[in-house]
Design a protein around this nucleic acid. Structure first.
Length: 137
DNA sequence: GCCAACGTTGGC
DNA sequence: GCCAACGTTGGC
């Protein structure tokens, strides 16, 4: 199983909205690297839900329930989306400041490529972040 | 609200 | 194929 981190501005689409919806497409990605990450996702993969801009913290865990397919909101036909569902909220949100302050996470994609909205998470990073969030890995 | 970092576009 | 101009993201 692979792990990911997906960003959304909470005033665009928030964790609580996803919980209310129960399941949704992750659409709107317009960056090739992010798209390639979407395409690499498999059903059953897990992903952190990260609130960018406001909050700047990991707030929940999602599961990929459908692999990449064309994003109908993209007129060019170049970009895809996946379907996700919420798995569990974090007990303690993990803030960007905490992540940046942890020397074990210097290579974390969220730090290295701050503008990448769909990023891979390594197994050891996932375990560390789950521990920081107070949830089982 | 500002701006640095970064990605994309388009002229040449 | 290069690169300047421009647009966007997202932290601060």
């Amino acid at each position: 199983m692979a792990y990911w981190l997906m960003k959304s501005e909470p005033y665009e689409y928030s964790w609580s909205q996803l919980v209310a919806d129960g399941l949704n497409h992750w659409d709107g990605v317009r960056n090739y690297q992010a798209r390639n990450n979407l395409r690499a996702m498999q059903t059953g993969d897990r992903a952190f839900f990260y609130h960018s801009n406001e909050g700047r913290e990991i707030v929940g865990v999602m599961e990929i329930v459908k692999t990449a397919y064309p994003d109908p909101s993209d007129e060019t036909g170049r970009f895809d989306m996946v379907d996700v569902k919420p798995v569990m909220p974090v007990v303690t949100p993990v803030t960007l400041a905490q992540i940046k302050a942890d020397p074990r996470l210097v290579d974390f994609a969220l730090i290295r490529q701050s503008r990448l909205s769909v990023a891979p998470v390594r197994d050891n990073e996932w375990a560390m972040l789950c521990a920081m969030a107070g949830i089982p890995a």
